[in-house]
Design a binder for these strands. Structure first.
Lengths: 151, 151
DNA sequence: ATTTTATATTTGTATATACAAATGTTGTGT
DNA sequence: ACACAACATTTGTATATACAAATATAAAAT
Protein backbone atom coordinates (compact mmCIF):
# COMPACT_ATOMS: atom_id res chain seq x y z
CA UNK A 1 0.00 0.00 0.00
CA UNK A 2 1.41 3.36 -1.03
CA UNK A 3 1.95 5.87 1.76
CA UNK A 4 -0.49 8.29 0.11
CA UNK A 5 -3.23 5.70 0.52
CA UNK A 6 -2.26 4.95 4.10
CA UNK A 7 -2.69 8.55 5.20
CA UNK A 8 -5.37 9.19 2.54
CA UNK A 9 -3.48 12.23 1.27
CA UNK A 10 -5.59 14.80 -0.52
CA UNK A 11 -2.71 16.79 -1.98
CA UNK A 12 0.38 15.54 -3.86
CA UNK A 13 3.56 15.29 -1.78
CA UNK A 14 7.23 15.71 -2.57
CA UNK A 15 9.34 12.58 -2.69
CA UNK A 16 11.40 13.60 0.37
CA UNK A 17 8.17 14.03 2.35
CA UNK A 18 6.89 10.66 1.20
CA UNK A 19 10.11 9.01 2.33
CA UNK A 20 9.82 10.47 5.81
CA UNK A 21 6.18 9.49 6.20
CA UNK A 22 6.99 6.07 4.82
CA UNK A 23 9.73 5.48 7.36
CA UNK A 24 7.59 6.76 10.23
CA UNK A 25 4.67 4.59 9.22
CA UNK A 26 6.77 1.49 8.56
CA UNK A 27 8.32 1.85 11.99
CA UNK A 28 4.82 1.97 13.40
CA UNK A 29 3.80 -1.22 11.64
CA UNK A 30 6.93 -3.00 12.86
CA UNK A 31 6.46 -1.63 16.36
CA UNK A 32 2.86 -2.74 16.69
CA UNK A 33 3.70 -6.35 15.89
CA UNK A 34 6.79 -6.31 18.03
CA UNK A 35 4.83 -4.86 20.91
CA UNK A 36 2.30 -7.68 20.79
CA UNK A 37 5.03 -10.29 20.87
CA UNK A 38 6.90 -8.96 23.88
CA UNK A 39 3.74 -7.92 25.71
CA UNK A 40 2.63 -11.55 25.79
CA UNK A 41 5.68 -12.09 28.01
CA UNK A 42 5.06 -9.01 30.13
CA UNK A 43 7.85 -6.96 28.60
CA UNK A 44 7.79 -3.56 26.97
CA UNK A 45 9.75 -3.21 23.72
CA UNK A 46 12.42 -1.17 25.50
CA UNK A 47 12.71 -3.73 28.29
CA UNK A 48 13.27 -6.41 25.68
CA UNK A 49 15.87 -4.21 24.09
CA UNK A 50 17.83 -3.91 27.33
CA UNK A 51 17.77 -7.68 27.82
CA UNK A 52 18.99 -8.13 24.24
CA UNK A 53 21.88 -5.74 24.88
CA UNK A 54 22.83 -7.53 28.08
CA UNK A 55 22.83 -10.90 26.34
CA UNK A 56 25.16 -9.42 23.73
CA UNK A 57 27.62 -8.75 26.53
CA UNK A 58 28.15 -12.51 26.86
CA UNK A 59 28.36 -12.64 30.63
CA UNK A 60 30.22 -9.34 31.01
CA UNK A 61 28.03 -6.86 32.92
CA UNK A 62 27.20 -3.51 31.34
CA UNK A 63 26.94 -0.20 33.12
CA UNK A 64 24.10 2.23 32.56
CA UNK A 65 25.70 4.45 29.95
CA UNK A 66 26.83 1.45 27.90
CA UNK A 67 23.22 0.26 27.83
CA UNK A 68 22.02 3.73 26.96
CA UNK A 69 24.34 4.16 23.99
CA UNK A 70 23.33 0.79 22.55
CA UNK A 71 19.63 1.49 22.65
CA UNK A 72 17.68 2.52 19.59
CA UNK A 73 15.75 5.25 21.38
CA UNK A 74 18.55 7.26 22.92
CA UNK A 75 16.27 9.15 25.32
CA UNK A 76 14.97 6.12 27.20
CA UNK A 77 15.24 6.25 30.96
CA UNK A 78 17.59 3.36 31.57
CA UNK A 79 17.35 3.51 35.35
CA UNK A 80 13.63 2.89 35.40
CA UNK A 81 13.80 0.24 32.70
CA UNK A 82 16.36 -1.67 34.72
CA UNK A 83 14.20 -1.19 37.84
CA UNK A 84 11.38 -3.03 36.10
CA UNK A 85 13.65 -5.84 34.96
CA UNK A 86 15.07 -6.19 38.47
CA UNK A 87 11.57 -6.63 39.91
CA UNK A 88 11.05 -9.53 37.51
CA UNK A 89 14.48 -10.93 38.44
CA UNK A 90 15.59 -10.82 34.80
CA UNK A 91 18.73 -8.81 35.63
CA UNK A 92 21.03 -8.03 38.54
CA UNK A 93 22.41 -4.60 39.44
CA UNK A 94 25.44 -3.90 41.63
CA UNK A 95 27.75 -1.00 42.29
CA UNK A 96 30.93 -1.32 40.25
CA UNK A 97 33.85 -1.96 42.67
CA UNK A 98 36.35 -0.02 40.51
CA UNK A 99 34.22 3.08 40.16
CA UNK A 100 31.43 3.53 42.62
CA UNK A 101 29.60 5.93 40.30
CA UNK A 102 28.93 3.11 37.88
CA UNK A 103 26.47 0.26 38.14
CA UNK A 104 27.05 -3.22 36.79
CA UNK A 105 23.95 -4.65 35.21
CA UNK A 106 23.89 -8.26 34.08
CA UNK A 107 21.25 -10.60 32.70
CA UNK A 108 20.22 -13.55 34.91
CA UNK A 109 19.61 -17.13 33.81
CA UNK A 110 15.90 -16.38 34.05
CA UNK A 111 16.43 -13.48 31.65
CA UNK A 112 18.40 -15.64 29.25
CA UNK A 113 15.67 -18.29 29.36
CA UNK A 114 13.02 -15.71 28.58
CA UNK A 115 14.98 -14.39 25.59
CA UNK A 116 15.52 -17.94 24.32
CA UNK A 117 11.79 -18.53 24.54
CA UNK A 118 11.12 -15.31 22.60
CA UNK A 119 13.81 -15.83 19.95
CA UNK A 120 11.82 -17.94 17.46
CA UNK A 121 8.83 -15.56 17.51
CA UNK A 122 11.03 -12.49 17.10
CA UNK A 123 13.04 -14.08 14.28
CA UNK A 124 9.81 -15.10 12.61
CA UNK A 125 8.49 -11.55 12.83
CA UNK A 126 11.68 -10.16 11.35
CA UNK A 127 11.82 -12.70 8.56
CA UNK A 128 8.14 -12.47 7.66
CA UNK A 129 8.42 -8.78 6.80
CA UNK A 130 11.75 -9.17 5.00
CA UNK A 131 10.31 -12.00 2.89
CA UNK A 132 8.45 -9.41 0.85
CA UNK A 133 11.83 -8.44 -0.59
CA UNK A 134 14.45 -10.47 -2.43
CA UNK A 135 17.83 -10.76 -0.65
CA UNK A 136 19.23 -8.16 -3.07
CA UNK A 137 16.38 -5.77 -2.30
CA UNK A 138 16.96 -6.32 1.41
CA UNK A 139 20.60 -5.32 0.98
CA UNK A 140 19.59 -2.27 -1.03
CA UNK A 141 16.99 -1.15 1.54
CA UNK A 142 19.52 -1.50 4.32
CA UNK A 143 22.19 0.43 2.43
CA UNK A 144 19.83 3.20 1.36
CA UNK A 145 18.60 3.73 4.92
CA UNK A 146 22.16 4.07 6.14
CA UNK A 147 23.02 6.45 3.33
CA UNK A 148 19.82 8.41 3.88
CA UNK A 149 20.57 9.36 7.46
CA UNK A 150 24.22 10.25 6.83
CA UNK A 151 24.73 13.65 8.39
CA UNK B 1 27.08 4.94 9.81
CA UNK B 2 26.13 1.28 9.69
CA UNK B 3 23.45 0.17 12.12
CA UNK B 4 25.89 -2.27 13.76
CA UNK B 5 28.06 0.69 14.72
CA UNK B 6 25.11 2.72 15.94
CA UNK B 7 24.05 0.09 18.46
CA UNK B 8 27.64 -1.14 18.89
CA UNK B 9 26.60 -4.71 18.15
CA UNK B 10 28.91 -7.38 19.55
CA UNK B 11 27.42 -10.29 17.60
CA UNK B 12 26.63 -10.54 13.88
CA UNK B 13 22.98 -9.98 12.93
CA UNK B 14 20.76 -11.35 10.20
CA UNK B 15 19.86 -9.00 7.37
CA UNK B 16 16.14 -8.96 8.33
CA UNK B 17 17.10 -7.92 11.86
CA UNK B 18 19.39 -5.20 10.57
CA UNK B 19 16.58 -3.81 8.41
CA UNK B 20 14.23 -3.57 11.37
CA UNK B 21 16.80 -1.89 13.60
CA UNK B 22 17.73 0.40 10.74
CA UNK B 23 14.14 1.52 10.22
CA UNK B 24 13.57 2.01 13.96
CA UNK B 25 16.75 4.01 14.34
CA UNK B 26 16.21 6.11 11.21
CA UNK B 27 12.73 6.97 12.43
CA UNK B 28 14.32 8.08 15.69
CA UNK B 29 16.80 10.34 13.92
CA UNK B 30 14.03 11.89 11.83
CA UNK B 31 11.79 12.24 14.88
CA UNK B 32 14.40 14.01 16.99
CA UNK B 33 14.96 16.71 14.38
CA UNK B 34 11.28 17.05 13.66
CA UNK B 35 10.55 17.34 17.36
CA UNK B 36 12.98 20.23 17.75
CA UNK B 37 11.40 22.11 14.87
CA UNK B 38 7.80 21.90 16.07
CA UNK B 39 8.71 22.30 19.73
CA UNK B 40 10.13 25.74 18.95
CA UNK B 41 6.54 26.66 18.07
CA UNK B 42 5.03 24.94 21.11
CA UNK B 43 3.64 22.01 19.17
CA UNK B 44 4.14 18.29 19.67
CA UNK B 45 4.81 16.25 16.52
CA UNK B 46 1.32 14.75 16.71
CA UNK B 47 -0.29 18.16 17.13
CA UNK B 48 1.53 19.33 14.02
CA UNK B 49 0.30 16.24 12.25
CA UNK B 50 -3.33 17.04 13.07
CA UNK B 51 -2.93 20.59 11.79
CA UNK B 52 -1.36 19.25 8.60
CA UNK B 53 -4.33 16.92 8.09
CA UNK B 54 -6.80 19.73 8.65
CA UNK B 55 -5.04 21.98 6.16
CA UNK B 56 -5.26 19.11 3.65
CA UNK B 57 -9.05 19.30 4.01
CA UNK B 58 -8.98 22.69 2.27
CA UNK B 59 -11.61 24.37 4.38
CA UNK B 60 -13.80 21.31 4.78
CA UNK B 61 -13.93 20.31 8.45
CA UNK B 62 -12.87 16.80 9.45
CA UNK B 63 -14.46 14.68 12.13
CA UNK B 64 -12.48 12.77 14.70
CA UNK B 65 -12.32 9.41 12.96
CA UNK B 66 -11.21 11.01 9.70
CA UNK B 67 -8.34 12.63 11.55
CA UNK B 68 -7.52 9.38 13.30
CA UNK B 69 -7.31 7.35 10.11
CA UNK B 70 -5.00 9.86 8.48
CA UNK B 71 -2.51 9.91 11.30
CA UNK B 72 0.72 8.00 11.16
CA UNK B 73 0.47 6.67 14.71
CA UNK B 74 -2.97 5.10 14.64
CA UNK B 75 -3.23 4.85 18.43
CA UNK B 76 -2.98 8.56 19.18
CA UNK B 77 -5.70 10.03 21.35
CA UNK B 78 -7.28 12.45 18.93
CA UNK B 79 -9.65 13.99 21.46
CA UNK B 80 -6.89 15.20 23.71
CA UNK B 81 -4.72 16.34 20.80
CA UNK B 82 -7.58 18.49 19.53
CA UNK B 83 -8.15 19.76 23.09
CA UNK B 84 -4.61 21.12 23.11
CA UNK B 85 -5.02 22.74 19.70
CA UNK B 86 -8.29 24.32 20.78
CA UNK B 87 -6.64 25.92 23.79
CA UNK B 88 -4.14 27.55 21.43
CA UNK B 89 -6.98 28.61 19.12
CA UNK B 90 -5.41 26.77 16.20
CA UNK B 91 -8.60 24.78 15.47
CA UNK B 92 -12.35 24.96 16.05
CA UNK B 93 -14.58 22.08 17.16
CA UNK B 94 -18.35 21.91 16.78
CA UNK B 95 -20.98 19.22 16.89
CA UNK B 96 -21.89 18.08 13.37
CA UNK B 97 -25.48 19.18 12.64
CA UNK B 98 -26.24 16.11 10.48
CA UNK B 99 -25.02 13.59 13.02
CA UNK B 100 -24.68 14.71 16.58
CA UNK B 101 -22.27 11.89 17.37
CA UNK B 102 -19.68 13.47 15.15
CA UNK B 103 -17.53 16.52 15.71
CA UNK B 104 -16.44 18.93 13.03
CA UNK B 105 -12.87 20.04 13.51
CA UNK B 106 -11.41 22.78 11.32
CA UNK B 107 -8.15 24.70 11.25
CA UNK B 108 -8.33 28.43 12.02
CA UNK B 109 -6.52 31.25 10.24
CA UNK B 110 -4.12 31.32 13.18
CA UNK B 111 -3.45 27.63 12.58
CA UNK B 112 -2.89 28.18 8.88
CA UNK B 113 -0.50 31.02 9.61
CA UNK B 114 1.47 28.85 12.00
CA UNK B 115 1.77 26.08 9.41
CA UNK B 116 2.86 28.56 6.77
CA UNK B 117 5.53 29.81 9.12
CA UNK B 118 6.74 26.26 9.75
CA UNK B 119 6.63 25.12 6.12
CA UNK B 120 10.11 26.24 5.02
CA UNK B 121 11.81 24.68 8.04
CA UNK B 122 9.92 21.41 7.65
CA UNK B 123 10.63 21.25 3.91
CA UNK B 124 14.25 21.99 4.56
CA UNK B 125 14.45 19.18 7.10
CA UNK B 126 12.84 16.75 4.67
CA UNK B 127 15.05 17.78 1.79
CA UNK B 128 18.27 17.83 3.77
CA UNK B 129 17.98 14.13 4.64
CA UNK B 130 16.83 13.13 1.16
CA UNK B 131 19.77 14.98 -0.40
CA UNK B 132 22.02 12.14 0.67
CA UNK B 133 20.34 10.06 -2.03
CA UNK B 134 20.01 10.60 -5.76
CA UNK B 135 16.43 11.03 -7.03
CA UNK B 136 16.55 7.44 -8.32
CA UNK B 137 17.70 6.16 -4.95
CA UNK B 138 14.92 8.14 -3.28
CA UNK B 139 12.37 6.43 -5.52
CA UNK B 140 13.90 3.05 -4.78
CA UNK B 141 13.89 3.61 -1.02
CA UNK B 142 10.27 4.66 -1.14
CA UNK B 143 9.23 1.68 -3.24
CA UNK B 144 11.19 -0.81 -1.12
CA UNK B 145 9.62 0.45 2.10
CA UNK B 146 6.16 0.05 0.63
CA UNK B 147 6.96 -3.41 -0.65
CA UNK B 148 8.59 -4.35 2.66
CA UNK B 149 5.50 -3.79 4.76
CA UNK B 150 3.11 -5.50 2.33
CA UNK B 151 1.07 -7.90 4.41
C1' DA C 1 44.45 19.49 50.67
C1' DT C 2 40.69 21.94 48.81
C1' DT C 3 37.95 23.70 45.27
C1' DT C 4 36.32 23.04 40.72
C1' DT C 5 34.95 20.39 36.90
C1' DA C 6 33.46 16.27 34.76
C1' DT C 7 31.15 11.86 34.90
C1' DA C 8 27.47 8.40 36.11
C1' DT C 9 23.25 7.64 37.72
C1' DT C 10 18.89 8.70 39.96
C1' DT C 11 14.81 11.32 40.94
C1' DG C 12 10.97 14.67 40.19
C1' DT C 13 7.58 16.23 37.37
C1' DA C 14 4.92 17.34 33.55
C1' DT C 15 3.22 15.50 29.47
C1' DA C 16 2.13 11.70 26.27
C1' DT C 17 0.62 7.13 25.17
C1' DA C 18 -2.02 2.76 25.40
C1' DC C 19 -6.05 0.67 26.25
C1' DA C 20 -10.41 -0.28 28.53
C1' DA C 21 -14.71 1.48 29.95
C1' DA C 22 -18.27 4.93 29.74
C1' DT C 23 -21.31 8.16 27.36
C1' DG C 24 -24.32 9.70 24.01
C1' DT C 25 -26.35 9.08 19.36
C1' DT C 26 -28.00 6.72 15.38
C1' DG C 27 -29.61 2.79 12.79
C1' DT C 28 -32.02 -1.92 12.65
C1' DG C 29 -35.03 -5.58 13.66
C1' DT C 30 -39.24 -7.06 15.79
C1' DA D 1 -42.57 2.26 19.57
C1' DC D 2 -39.08 -0.47 21.87
C1' DA D 3 -35.07 -3.08 22.58
C1' DC D 4 -30.64 -3.84 20.90
C1' DA D 5 -26.57 -3.44 18.21
C1' DA D 6 -23.38 -0.28 15.93
C1' DC D 7 -20.97 3.95 15.81
C1' DA D 8 -18.38 8.27 17.31
C1' DT D 9 -16.26 10.33 20.76
C1' DT D 10 -14.79 11.09 25.48
C1' DT D 11 -12.97 9.88 29.93
C1' DG D 12 -10.30 7.21 33.42
C1' DT D 13 -6.25 5.20 34.61
C1' DA D 14 -1.99 3.04 34.52
C1' DT D 15 2.31 3.21 32.40
C1' DA D 16 5.91 5.36 29.53
C1' DT D 17 8.54 9.20 27.89
C1' DA D 18 11.07 13.64 27.88
C1' DC D 19 13.77 16.60 30.16
C1' DA D 20 15.55 19.24 34.01
C1' DA D 21 17.43 19.07 38.50
C1' DA D 22 19.59 16.57 42.17
C1' DT D 23 22.90 13.36 44.09
C1' DA D 24 27.14 11.00 44.45
C1' DT D 25 31.74 9.92 43.02
C1' DA D 26 36.01 10.63 40.61
C1' DA D 27 39.45 13.35 38.21
C1' DA D 28 41.75 17.72 37.47
C1' DA D 29 43.31 22.24 38.79
C1' DT D 30 45.12 25.43 42.07
Amino acid sequence: MKIEEVIKATVPMSLPKKIILNIMYTQNVIGENFNEIVKAHDLSPEQYNVLRILRGQKGKPANMCVIQERMIAKTSNTTRLVDKLLLKELVTREVCPDNRRKMEVAITQKGLDLLKELDPTIDNHENRLAQNLTPEEQETLNTLLEKYRTT
